[in-house]
């Protein structure tokens, strides 16, 4: 995957996505298929590999019978649609208050160091894009970074470096808390409601 990709001239759903798209549209009442614009944009983004070129937005608009500008508006309103190309692994580090209090600055600097890029940049091999995001909604496991669909939680400098190195090697590190917690249970195991009575 090269980084300096041209905007594709055309786009259409492949057979697999088309099946999914029909399933999505079937969820909405007859004549209300325009409501499916967000899931369909997501499907398009997944098919293309993480971002939405204009051709894809135009395709979704035509698919749903919407004016193209309405689709552009949606795609540009929500931050999880990327209208510019991103790397294969999109590292999104949360730097909002709870994550920041728990050391997200260190996580960001570790990412920069490991990947050799700054925020908003993509590695020359097109593998990683680093972004800073607003609250990812996992404050209880702060600090947190989302890499594509997986949340990596309770990060610190060492663990985020480990995760990124593993991805670089082509492995699939286990998502979730990286400090041994189970979900959002206390560190070191439960402390209450352990015994009877």
């Amino acid at each position: 995957m090269s980084l300096h990709r041209e905007e594709p001239k055309s786009f259409s759903f492949d057979a697999e996505t088309l099946v999914k798209a029909k399933q999505v549209i079937a969820k909405y009442p007859e004549g209300r298929s325009r409501s499916a614009v967000m899931p369909l944009l997501d499907l398009a983004q997944r098919q293309i590999g993480g971002w939405l070129p204009r051709a894809a937005m135009d395709y979704v608009a035509e698919y749903l019978g919407l004016d193209p500008i309405k689709v552009y508006e949606v795609a540009h309103f929500y931050t999880m649609y990327n209208t510019k190309p991103v790397g294969r692994h999109h590292v999104q580090v949360c730097t909002n208050l709870p994550c920041w209090l728990r050391g997200s600055d260190h996580v960001v600097s570790a990412c920069k160091k490991t990947l050799g890029i700054g925020i908003g940049e993509t590695t020359p091999d097109g593998q990683f894009t680093l972004s800073e995001v607003e609250c990812a909604g996992a404050c209880v496991n702060a600090p947190v970074a989302a890499i594509n669909d997986d949340y990596f939680e309770d990060l610190d400098e060492e663990s985020v470096t480990r995760v990124l190195e593993a991805i670089k090697r082509g492995e699939a590190p286990k998502p979730g808390p990286q400090n041994g917690r189970m979900n959002s249970a206390p560190l070191g195991g439960p402390t209450t409601l352990k015994g009877e009575g």
């Binding site: 204009r54 004016d67 193209p68 500008i69 309405k70 552009y72 508006e73 540009h76 309103f77």
Partner: peptide, 25 residues
Amino acid sequence: TTEVAGVPDLGGIGRGEHMEIDTYV
């Protein structure tokens, strides 16, 4: 443009402080 002229060329692109009125294309 959307209602009277019937030519939906303009829209609000982006959000919040960064919202811009644009044809996008």
